[in-house]
């Protein structure tokens, strides 16, 4: 399963090993882990609750991985996103790409994260000293995703 949404933690070592699976064609492994910070917009954050849309979220992530595969030469990918209650220092999201060479592996990894942040249905609510608040979408994330747009063949 290249895409997983789960409440439990993940182990990057195990995920990389599973993706490489003794495949001697793999020459590059690129990965990204997003983690919970204890501060956001100047306020202390004591906890984060992540909500998703079961079914659509998995489908959106699979679509993003499929788009990356069409665009870059990669061998395989794993995307894991946690939901439920998380604390500062916890891991939130993992993307691992295995490919033949680093250029495509790096690019596919960054593309998947940029698209995940703007297109996959997840929502964060953070606990601050003032109470709970839903995190607002950032225009900088839209800008990051738009970098990848290719007008001649981008289909939404």
């Amino acid at each position: 399963m290249p895409v997983r949404v789960q409440t439990g933690d993940f182990d990057i070592g195990r995920e990389i090993a599973a993706l490489r699976a003794a495949n001697p064609k793999v020459g590059a492994v690129a990965s990204f882990i997003g983690t919970v910070r204890d501060v956001n917009d100047g306020d202390a954050v004591s906890a984060l609750t992540l909500e998703h849309y079961p079914g659509m979220t998995e489908q959106a992530l699979e679509g993003i991985v499929a788009a990356a595969r069409l665009r870059w030469r990669i061998i395989d990918a794993t995307v894991i996103h946690r939901v439920g209650e998380l604390k500062p220092l916890d891991q939130i999201v993992l993307v691992v790409i295995v490919g033949e060479h680093r250029g495509d592996a790096f690019a596919a990894c960054e593309f998947i994260m940029d698209y995940l942040k703007t297109r996959a249905p997840f929502w964060k609510k953070e606990q601050t000293p003032q109470g709970g608040r839903w995190v607002e979408a950032r225009t900088s994330d839209d800008t990051a995703a738009e970098r990848w747009a290719r007008p001649e063949q981008d289909a939404a």
Partner: peptide, 24 residues
């Protein structure tokens, strides 16, 4: 699937409303 205001709705459909996403 992501929809827009003109997307048709028929009996039996599942329609979801939500704020801009903030995962990752």
């Amino acid at each position: 699937h992501v929809a827009d205001p003109a997307t048709p709705i028929r009996a039996g459909d599942e329609v979801a409303f939500f704020p801009p996403v903030t995962g990752g």
